[in-house]
Design a protein around this nucleic acid. Structure first.
Lengths: 263, 263
DNA sequence: CGCGACGTTGAGCGGCGTCAACTCGCGTGG
DNA sequence: CCACGCGAGTTGACGCCGCTCAACGTCGCG
């Protein structure tokens, strides 16, 4: 992977741009690939915050491209607790299982107001068939998703409150950077403390206290909906954060091969 | 779950059998598929308990078929804690990323004494290419793996100690059943309390106490290395356990299509 | 102006971690 | 044959992290 992003000026933020940026972080796309993506993301819909999109055991009939805003996968337990299992940031894509009509094991919904493009299953499969570079990039993205799940398990199982929060913030920072939505150490972070609680497996009162601690230690500044990382190294050290799980730099064995299964 | 498989008599436990049983739970294999698997698992090696097989950032050069024993993926943190992120039970397969030479984000090792077959990368890819039914079954297995990761996130983030342990035990029970290694409510469970602690994100002292509680409540009996579920329904209710994430019953869209990416 | 969503803070308590001691079974070496 | 060591399990004491309940401040919006 060459430099992850050209460090664009604000003029670079086109309509469906995050998708292109995310995919080009993995694979260089051809002009016609790019045009295809632009055509796809030309029509999009806005959804308000906290909107359920799919619920558990639904069978998804579209892929969902996230152009703007934060969405997530989550599960509800009968005791009322909600656990978020994955974040979908701008540039991320929710894919239905390609060869199957599988009921979802997780619900899907927005956290903040979002702009999304729904791509019907058939169109999406056609896209992957016609555009091997895009298919390859998506396969790589899938690998990072699986690695992220394992990272979350480690986070929830083995880290203290402050470490856990720090790790999560680092992840969001790095992921937003690849789509140009975070500067070196600052980004828009429109997430509720209650959402953070459901992400990190803590009560929202405790999330608040842990946030205070990170502030008191001069690591972050969070006001309004803007998060500033004051000491990026301090935060990464606290979290033992290593972003390599988000990258797929290894050379493919058969570069041009059409999409194949991913473990 | 209805009986997943023909519920074979004990005579059915052949050498590499768990692999076949696991795959046939997804897809009916042809006699030649079966023969191919038998040939593959004919040579296997034994490994003692607690043996590292691959460590983090290694690039795996083989697939690993688990014929007997429990293995796992895990990560170490610098504070010394170890987090187990996945169990590999008999019939499970560790796959290298197919089109890439990706360094691992997790280490791999045995928990108990194991019998394993190592299949060199190239042979493994050939197998998948020559045996579409096997490839399809493996793709389905991959889907259950991803769902299991999300289930673990929920488990670690949202459930109390007893619920967490109960959920884990239910998962192992159901997974062992599909390979015929668990009877209705009893199976060999050679896992250390320290390993359980690293699995569930608790200290091993606390694992002990939680186990006591499940015993005291008459839900389980664990002595020697044999676990008996005394009240399967009670345990499932406590854990809110729903095994559907382990199944892929939905009809494929294009049944015969060769392996395609899996989300 | 009032209401609801969100954030903040305090008090009290229980789950769970840590430290430490003790048991039991097993294998090894004296 | 017994002493010893070791790994695993068990139990108690103690303290802290994090949960619950509850009150209160602030902001944005109808």
């Amino acid at each position: 992977m060459q430099k992850v992003l050209p460090r664009a000026g604000p003029a670079d933020h086109e309509a469906g741009d995050p998708i292109r940026r995310r995919l080009t972080a993995f694979v260089e796309l051809s002009p016609s690939d790019t045009r295809e993506l632009e055509a796809l993301t030309a029509n999009s819909r806005r959804f308000p915050a906290q909107t359920p999109l799919l619920h558990q055991s639904d069978v998804p009939e579209s892929a969902i491209l996230v152009l703007d805003g934060f969405a997530c996968r989550y599960k509800y337990l009968t005791n009322g607790r909600r656990q978020i299992t994955a974040y979908l940031l701008p540039g991320d894509i929710f894919e239905p299982e390609l060869d199957f009509r599988l009921p979802l094991d997780c619900a899907l919904g927005t956290l903040t107001a979002c702009r999304l493009t729904l791509v019907p299953r058939q169109d999406y499969e056609d896209l992957l068939r016609r555009r091997p570079r895009i298919a390859l990039a998506l396969q790589m993205a899938r690998l990072t998703e699986a690695a992220t799940l394992r990272e979350w398990i480690t986070n929830l199982g083995s880290r203290s409150g402050p470490e856990r929060l720090a790790h999560f913030l680092c992840e969001v920072l790095f992921r937003l950077r690849t789509t140009g939505l975070a500067s070196e150490n600052q980004f828009s972070f429109p997430i509720t403390q209650a959402d953070l609680a459901d992400t990190l497996g803590m009560s929202c009162v405790h999330v608040n206290r842990v946030l205070q601690k990170l502030r008191r230690d001069g690591l972050i500044e969070l006001s309004g909906r803007k998060l500033t990382i004051l000491k990026p190294d301090g935060l990464k050290t606290l979290a033992e954060y290593d972003a390599s799980y988000l990258k797929v730099e290894a050379t493919p064995l058969r570069p041009g091969s059409s999409a194949r299964p991913a473990a």
